[in-house]
Design a protein around this nucleic acid. Structure first.
Lengths: 351, 351
DNA sequence: CGTAAATATGGACGCGTGTAAAAAAGGGAG
DNA sequence: CTCCCTTTTTTACACGCGTCCATATTTACG
């Protein structure tokens, strides 16, 4: 807190002036700022000495103007107010930083128009590549087409069925949701599936995975929550509203309920509590609630939420790696790369 | 989903070529892209007609090079994995968008070095101004000094005590925390304060506000949780660890507990549940737990969390407005602007 | 239809840096 | 000391577009 008050350094705003100020040619300065190793040791020392005495930062735009690679990758995500996406974003940022890229993030707020604008911005910025966690059905596919035709481009987390030529990194929902389904079927009765209105690719994929696994197990599948109740379209509110309605009719109070994701499960837990039900505890009839994603708050809920964790760090890193391979033209095969990571059960108290 | 397959438009990558392609001079195109109203109707129609036939987006960097205003404001926030900051960010983005500015966000991950780099980046990008939610004690104040001397600059959410000349927009913690303190003192016994290690300005401000209010009420204040337990430094884990330790000693089980923020309160609720305590319910001795911020999940916790809500939307909008006034030199008075918004009690079940 | 005023347009220059090629400087071996 | 090779500097041009200013075009008005 008690910083020694450094004297204000004189400000220099072009390399030209800096060159004059410290007696090194401008091209040499240019090379120095791109990579200090590219100039001789003597020049480097002189430059660093000079930088101690004056205030200068290269102009961001000018440096990116006439350069083959901007060293930036664009990331589009649908929500920011979802801890799953913030975790994914952190993983991506970390991986990108280590690879020497800086990321520029745009949040679409789940609005196709904003998503489109973000894509335009990325193209006009000559980003080296883009990572996109697409919206659901409302996503404007023409935008993605244009993006793809102009720059390296990898989908993350959620994959539109129709885009079969774009690389994709995400979770193997057949495996992860299957895992949870199987677990619930084993420890309790046949699980039902608490879904969402079908506007999101992942949600649909998980629903299908549940149905497939139930079929495999020879059990009858039952999906609820595909209709919107009470105009609630926040995940937690949706889960709560759907289950509250069901519990009020006395239904499903002793069943195993697999929720499409943890945020819906949080609402489900709340509905259970409101009806005096204690998920996971056998004494009140065997109600079980499980989620998907391993939301950071799961261990702090009451009861703690059993869920299947996505390998977010691996997904983020693989996405960046894959994108960079595309950028450098190092792709091993020309065909579509699809990398799916497995989910891991997190056994807690709710199921 | 079933988009008609549009033919791929020929791509044009400079205004020069575009000019040749549609028979309008380049300067006219330049004006058109800045504001379509700045060219004659005939030219506008010709341009728009041409744009239908070819694919072109102006180069982001080139457009910002030789222009007085870049139309961008930089935002630095400490965390992304905190729903309070994502809400604040959304409010800021919305306000900025409406004012015609685009925002570029950098997350410091609570690392002073990254914070410093973000500030450098903003300066090198010639952003019109910056909005900073600073870190705590570790924040590098010299960086902020440099930022301030180079561009319009407003602090949000959290205010370093030493920076008395920078505009600040945030919550009036004396009022908001005082409100919660008073409420708890009224409905239950004298509240204690569950704090955090003292590394964050807001946390310290709230702690002080609590102490002051208690003094005003003639009650004895008691603060716990200023020491780090078990290396837990996530907010929820901290709250849980501190209260778990206390409850294990049989302490505070029938007290009112005001938590420094909702994330700590979530951990506190969990600790209570783990010890079979039901906050808010009188029957088990009058344990009460309240938080601060109105985290979006509060209504879905069990019990629902009583808290005091910050006016996030107002803060975001006021911050943008204040920054823009600074940018345009429209500030009414040359002295520091400080705008504090009041908190509002959200009475729920936990207290 | 003619003329002055208003407006739109195009030519020229500049923005701050990257980069290639040519010229100069430095460094070592003989 | 000379010659050759490696770095560095110079010189020059390029990047794509903003903006000024002189000129061409349109509009308004009589």
């Amino acid at each position: 807190m008690s910083e020694t008050q450094k004297p204000v350094k004189p400000r220099i705003d072009t390399m030209e002036h800096l060159s004059a100020a410290i007696g090194v040619s401008r091209p040499t300065l240019s090379r120095y700022f791109q990579d200090p190793e590219r100039v001789s040791r003597t020049s480097r020392e002189r430059i660093e000495q000079g930088l101690e005495r004056v205030e200068y930062v290269p102009n961001f735009f000018a440096t990116r103007m006439n350069r083959a690679s901007t060293g930036m990758i664009g990331v589009i995500i649908p929500y920011l107010n979802d801890l799953f996406f913030s975790r994914l974003l952190e993983a991506i940022e970390l991986a990108a930083m280590e690879a020497g890229y800086s990321v520029i993030t745009k949040c679409s707020h789940s609005d196709p128009a904003i998503e489109a604008r973000a894509a335009e911005t990325f193209m006009s910025m000559n980003v080296d590549g883009a990572l996109v966690a697409p919206l659901g059905n409302h996503s404007d596919l023409t935008v993605h087409e244009r993006l793809r035709s102009r720059l390296p481009f990898v989908m993350v987390d959620s994959q539109p069925e129709v885009m079969t030529e774009v690389d994709f990194i995400g979770t193997d929902h057949m495996q992860s949701t299957g895992l949870a389904t199987e677990y619930l079927a084993r420890v309790g009765g046949p699980p039902i599936f608490l879904a969402m209105p079908r506007v999101n690719f992942n949600a649909m994929a998980r629903e299908r995975a549940y149905v497939a696994k139930m079929e495999e197990l020879g059990l009858e599948s039952e999906v609820i929550g595909t209709e919107l109740i009470n105009d609630h379209w926040h995940f937690e509110a949706h889960g709560m509203a759907v289950l509250d309605a069901e519990f009020s009719k006395g239904r499903f109070t002793d069943r195993s309920i697999l929720c499409v994701n943890d945020r819906v499960a949080i609402g489900a837990l709340k509905a259970a509590a409101a009806h005096g039900l204690e998920p996971g505890a056998m004494r009140k009839g065997g109600l079980r609630i499980a989620g998907h994603d391993d939301y950071p708050l799961c261990p702090f809920l009451t009861p703690t939420l059993t869920t299947v964790a996505q390998n977010v760090d691996a997904i983020g890193e693989a996405a960046v790696t894959c994108l960079i391979e595309n950028i450098r033209g190092e792709k091993s095969s020309p065909e579509q790369t699809v990398k799916l990571f497995e989910g891991v059960m997190k056994m807690r108290n709710s199921a």
